[in-house]
Every structure is written in structure tokens, then in C-alpha cells.
């Protein structure tokens, strides 16, 4: 295969990806808008808040007209979508800021939490999965598998509350809430403080990802350990620690990588609950606030952002899998 045709193949794959991304975003935008239009959410009521009773029907009609709420949904969608294409997602009613700004701020705050939880669940899940597979049927394997099943069936918010009770309330090792000590200004928070506030939410959030990675890695490890090339390595005198490191780890990494990147969506979903439990001011907490206070522009913006992040996660997973397992390289070209 020539270099040129390989490059062309890559270009085509990238083009296909872009088309897929655009169609996904269009579908998400249309779907979410339809849901919002069909829902009993009343933007005027959400905007005015508790004073709804104080404004008359005349004033109300004026607001509706000004916002274009009396027009048919399809037309409203057209206007909104036209603004979205130019990068204007509207203004958040709750925060009184442009939606893009709110999302950027909150996402930046969530990023450290998400990244830490993601790394924690990936590294822990993979290592423990390898260990469980290597000690199949023995005590360690049984304990790890049992633990993974327990975690898989435990809801995030419940695990969060439990950790909060043990480490923050009983042992008082970690703070009870928030991303920084109460009453400090954003400028004067030290890195240590930040990490201190991050540990427990990250741990809670990583729980979502550990067990699938652990269980799949364990299965992959068992398969690799039963393969011909491991038998050959053993015949060369290779023993267990070396066997795992040199012959098994990379072969078993495929499913773990795919899962890990595909779980970005679950991670975002989990962050909604985890951030609520720990009152961590991230994107997840903003989502809850937006939903509870019927902030339609912010909700739509978050839906689009989440779709984008999940798509990028999946694409990266594909890429990482192909790098780790070279056989799949040829197939894709």
C-alpha cells in the first residue's frame, strides 16, 4: 500500500467522522428542542420566578411576544438554530450570563474532577482486572470480582453519601463540600486546598467506571493467558510478573481502552449526581440547577456540549485501541 493512498484513506475516515459529528449534533439539537417545546416548562414563569402572580396577563403576553413564544415551534427552532450556528447559545436565565460563558466556566471546574476520576477508574480498573485475571479462582480474584459487582450495583449518589459520612463526617479527613474552603475568594485558593476538595468527589465518580473496566480486563486477561503466544512465552521460561507485563497487558488493554473512552458519557452523567452530593460547582451541578429552575437555553447548551464530549471520547477510544492493538490498523485503512 502506498503512502499516498494511506493518507487518502485517513482523510476519508476523518471526513466521515466530521459528517457523523454534524449529523449527531443536528439530531441532538432537534430532539432536545422538541422535548423542551413539548414539556410543560413555561419560560416566562421560569424567568419571573415567584412573582408570577404579580404580573398581569397583559404583561405576560408582552413578554411572550417579545421572546417570540407565540410563534410556531418550527419557526422558533429555526431562529435558535441560526443563532447556535453563529456560536450564540443565548443567555442563561439563572446565571444571567451567556450560555457559552457559563458552560466554559463550569466545564473548566469539572475538568479536573472528571480527569482525575477518569484516570483513577482506568488505572485502578485495569490493574486490578489484570491481577484478578492472573489469580483466577483464588482468593484475590474472588474478592476483586465480588467488589466489582458490588460497585457496579451501587448508585453513585449513595456511594458519595457513604464516603462523605465516613471520611468527612466521622474521620474528618476531607471537607464536606465545595471546590474550595468556604469564604475564600477564587484568587486565594491554594493548589493543595483544591486537591483536598477534589479527592472525595473524584473517588465517588471513579466508582462508576472501575467495575466495567475491571471485569472486562479480567475476562480479556483470561483469554490472553489461554492463548498460544502465552504458552510459547511460558515455554521460554517466562513467569507470572513478567508474563503480565510483557505478554498480557498490551493484549488485554483493547477492551479497557474502548470502555474507558466510551465511558466519558457515563462519567458526565455520574458527575451530575456526584457534584450535587458534594456541592461541587461544576457542569454537573449547573445541569441540576438548570433543570430544576427551568433554564431552557442553558439546558440545550449543556445537551449539545455533552453530545460533543461523548463523541470526542468515542473517537479517541477508537484511535487509542488502534494504537495499542496494531492488527486493527490495517482493517480501518
Amino acid at each position: 500500500m502506498g503512502l499516498l493512498s494511506r493518507d487518502r484513506g485517513r482523510l476519508r475516515t476523518a471526513g466521515l467522522r466530521a459528517v457523523r459529528l454534524v449529523s449527531l449534533l443536528v439530531a441532538v439539537a432537534a430532539g432536545c428542542f422538541a422535548l423542551m417545546a413539548g414539556s410543560p416548562v413555561d419560560p416566562v414563569e421560569a424567568y419571573v420566578g415567584a412573582d408570577t402572580a404579580a404580573i398581569g396577563s397583559e404583561q405576560r403576553a408582552q413578554i411572550e411576544e417579545r421572546w417570540g413564544l407565540d410563534e410556531p415551534p418550527l419557526e422558533r427552532f429555526g431562529v435558535w438554530a441560526g443563532h447556535v450556528v453563529t456560536g450564540d447559545l443565548g443567555t442563561s436565565q439563572v446565571f444571567g450570563q451567556p450560555v457559552t460563558e457559563v458552560i466554559a466556566d463550569r466545564f473548566a471546574a469539572s475538568l479536573s474532577l472528571l480527569a482525575l476520576a477518569w484516570l483513577l477508574s482506568g488505572v485502578l480498573g485495569f490493574t486490578l482486572g489484570l491481577l484478578a485475571g492472573a489469580t483466577r479462582g483464588r482468593l484475590l480474584d474472588r474478592v476483586l470480582t465480588w467488589w466489582a459487582y458490588t460497585l457496579a450495583s451501587a448508585p453513585t449518589f449513595w456511594v458519595g453519601l457513604l464516603l462523605l459520612y465516613v471520611f468527612s463526617v466521622s474521620l474528618q479527613w476531607t471537607p464536606v463540600c465545595c471546590a474550595a474552603p468556604l469564604g475564600t475568594l477564587p484568587g486565594e485558593v491554594s493548589l493543595l486546598d483544591r486537591v483536598h476538595h477534589l479527592v472525595l468527589p473524584a473517588l465517588t465518580l471513579s466508582v462508576v467506571g472501575i467495575s466495567p473496566v475491571l471485569l472486562h480486563t479480567r475476562q480479556a486477561t483470561l483469554e490472553v493467558l489461554a492463548s498460544d503466544h502465552v504458552a510459547f512465552a511460558r515455554a521460554q521460561g517466562e513467569r507470572l510478573p513478567g508474563l503480565l507485563l510483557h505478554r498480557v497487558a498490551r493484549n488485554a488493554a483493547g477492551p479497557a481502552l474502548m470502555l474507558q473512552f466510551a465511558s466519558v458519557g457515563e462519567l458526565l452523567g455520574g458527575s451530575v449526581l456526584a457534584e450535587q452530593v458534594f456541592t461541587y460547582p461544576g457542569l454537573g451541578e449547573a445541569t441540576t440547577t438548570a433543570a430544576l429552575r427551568q433554564d431552557v437555553p442553558l439546558l440545550l447548551g449543556i445537551a449539545l456540549t455533552t453530545a460533543l464530549v461523548v463523541f470526542v471520547g468515542n473517537a479517541l477510544g477508537d484511535l487509542a485501541h488502534r494504537v495499542a492493538v496494531p492488527r486493527t490498523r490495517e482493517v480501518a485503512a
Binding site: 498460544d228 503466544h229 504458552a231 510459547f232 521460554q236 505478554r247 498490551r250 493484549n251 495499542a324 492488527r327
Partner: peptide
């Protein structure tokens, strides 16, 4: 030493 002949005895990732 074991001398196998099928290529499945080579580690596909290395």
C-alpha cells in the same frame, strides 16, 4: 524449548 509452528504463538501486539 518448545518449537511451535503456527503464527498464533507470536504476540500480535509486540
Amino acid at each position: 524449548a518448545l518449537l511451535p509452528q503456527s503464527l498464533t504463538h507470536l504476540d500480535p501486539t509486540a
